[in-house]
Design a protein around this nucleic acid. Structure first.
Lengths: 229, 229
DNA sequence: CTGCATCCTCTTCGATACTG
DNA sequence: CAGTATCGAAGAGGATGCAG
C-alpha cells in the first residue's frame, strides 16, 4: 500500500484532501480564470501568463481527474473547458482567498508585480460599456515608462469589448496616459482616477462626461478595497 | 528587477498574492493545526506527521515573514507559536477548504488515508467529557487489524482528556474494538456508532448508558457531513 | 493558431540522522 | 523540546518542436 502517492498528504482530513487538489502551484489562478469564464487553453494562458504550457496542460488534466473540470470538443474544433458543480463550488474559496489577499497582503508588495497584459485583460473583462455612447468607442492607454507593450486599445462596440496591442486604426475617442502603477492602483481600489489625476500621474483626453464617469465604467477589480464612494 | 522571486506568481492579483502564502505544500495543514490551538513545534508535528521537521521549520519561518504567525519564548522555555490577526482571519478559508473536501472528495478516496495517530489525536481534541461521570474515566480503543499502534487509551479526568499509546494502568471503564476504517467513518460522519455496531464492525463493552450516548460525547469531525440525528 | 509533447536544467521536497 | 545537516528523488520552469 503506497501511502506516499505523489503529492498526497496521507490524511483523511477533508482539509488535506481538498488541499491536495486546490493548493498546488498555479491551481488557484487557473481556477480563478475558469471561474471568470475562460474556456480555452490560450485564454487560460493569457490569464496565467507565467505558467508553462506543459504545466497548464498537466494541471487541467489533474482538475479533470479530480472531477472539477469538464473537457468537451468545442464548436470551432478547439477543446472547451468548463467547471463541474464541484469546481463551481470553489468560487467562494477563490474569492475568499482574493479578499484575504486584498486585506492583508502589503500593498507595496502587490505593486511590485505589475503586468500590463494582465491588467488590461482584467480591465477588459470587467469594463461596463453601459455609460458609453451607443456606437463604437475606442480608448487608448499609454504607459510611457514601458519599453514595449506601451500602447493598448480597448474597442467597445455594443456590449463587446476588444483588447488590442496593435493600433486598430479607428479614431481614438479617449486617450489615457498614466503609469502602470497608477493604473493598477486605481484598478485595485487603492487609488481613484480623481486622486491620481490630481497628483499629476494620470491624464485623460476626450469627452469630459466620459472622463468624469471613468471611475464608474472602468469598474474595479472584484477584490478592490471598498472605497467610500 | 527580478520578477521571478522564487515561488512568486508575478501577479498583483490578490488571489495570486494570497495563494503564494496559503497554497504551498503543507501550509493549509499547518494552519489547521494552529487554528485548532497547537502552539508548539512538536504538537504541530503530531498533527502533520508526514512533514519533515526541516520543512515544518521552514514553513513556520515563512508564515512569520508573511505576518501570519507570532513566535515568542514560552513560559517553559520552548518556543510558542500563535497566529496574528491576519493568520486568524484565514480560519474561514481553512474551514471552507474542509467543507468543500467533505462535500466533494470521494469518500472511498478519503478512507484510503487512514491513520490511527491522527484520528485519535483529533478525537482527543474534540471529545466532550460532559456526559462522563465526574471521576477519572478510561476508554481503551483496539484496532485488531493493525500490526502496531493497535491499542489506544483516552483518559478523561475533569475536563481534560489525555491520549496514551501505552497502557496507563488504570481500570478500563469502556473497551472499544473496531476497525480503523469504521472508527474513521464514524468520526467523519459517514457512518454512525449504531450503524457500525449493527453491521458487526464495532463492539463496545462497558456502561450501557455511556455506550448509548457514545455518538454524542465522541463528537464528530468539524467537517463531518451533517447527519439526520 | 490551438493544444499540447519532449528534453533539459534547476529548485524543492522527503528521509534520515544528528545537535544545542 | 526544537530544531539543523545532508543528500538523493521528485517536481517545476524554459525552450523548442509538432500535429490538427
Amino acid at each position: 500500500m503506497d501511502m506516499t502517492a505523489s503529492g498526497s498528504y496521507g490524511q483523511f482530513c477533508p482539509v488535506a484532501m481538498a488541499a491536495e487538489v486546490f493548493c498546488t502551484r498555479w491551481t488557484p489562478l487557473i481556477l480563478r480564470e475558469l471561474l471568470c469564464g475562460s474556456r480555452h487553453f490560450n485564454d487560460l494562458k493569457r490569464g496565467v501568463p507565467r505558467i508553462s504550457p506543459t504545466l497548464l496542460s498537466k494541471r487541467l488534466k489533474e482538475l479533470q481527474l479530480a472531477g472539477l473540470l469538464d473537457c468537451t470538443e468545442g464548436a470551432t474544433g478547439g477543446t472547451e473547458y468548463s467547471l463541474t458543480p464541484a469546481g463551481e463550488d470553489l468560487r467562494g474559496l477563490v474569492m475568499g482567498l482574493g479578499f484575504w489577499g486584498a486585506r492583508w497582503v502589503d500593498t507595496q508588495k502587490s505593486l511590485k508585480n505589475l503586468d500590463p497584459s494582465l491588467l488590461m485583460w482584467d480591465m477588459r473583462r470587467h469594463l461596463n460599456p453601459t455609460p458609453m455612447p451607443p456606437r463604437r468607442y475606442t480608448i487608448q492607454f499609454r504607459y510611457p515608462e514601458l519599453p514595449n507593450r506601451r500602447d493598448w486599445w480597448l474597442v467597445v462596440e455594443r456590449q463587446d469589448v476588444d483588447l488590442c496591442q496593435a493600433d486598430p486604426g479607428f479614431e481614438v475617442d479617449l486617450y489615457v496616459e498614466t503609469s502602470l502603477k497608477s493604473m493598477t492602483s486605481i484598478w485595485m481600489g487603492m487609488a481613484t482616477v480623481q486622486s491620481e489625476m490630481t497628483a499629476g500621474r494620470f491624464q485623460a483626453d476626450g469627452d469630459k462626461e466620459i472622463v468624469r464617469s471613468m471611475q464608474a465604467w472602468l469598474g474595479l477589480s472584484p477584490f478592490a478595497h471598498k472605497q467610500a464612494s
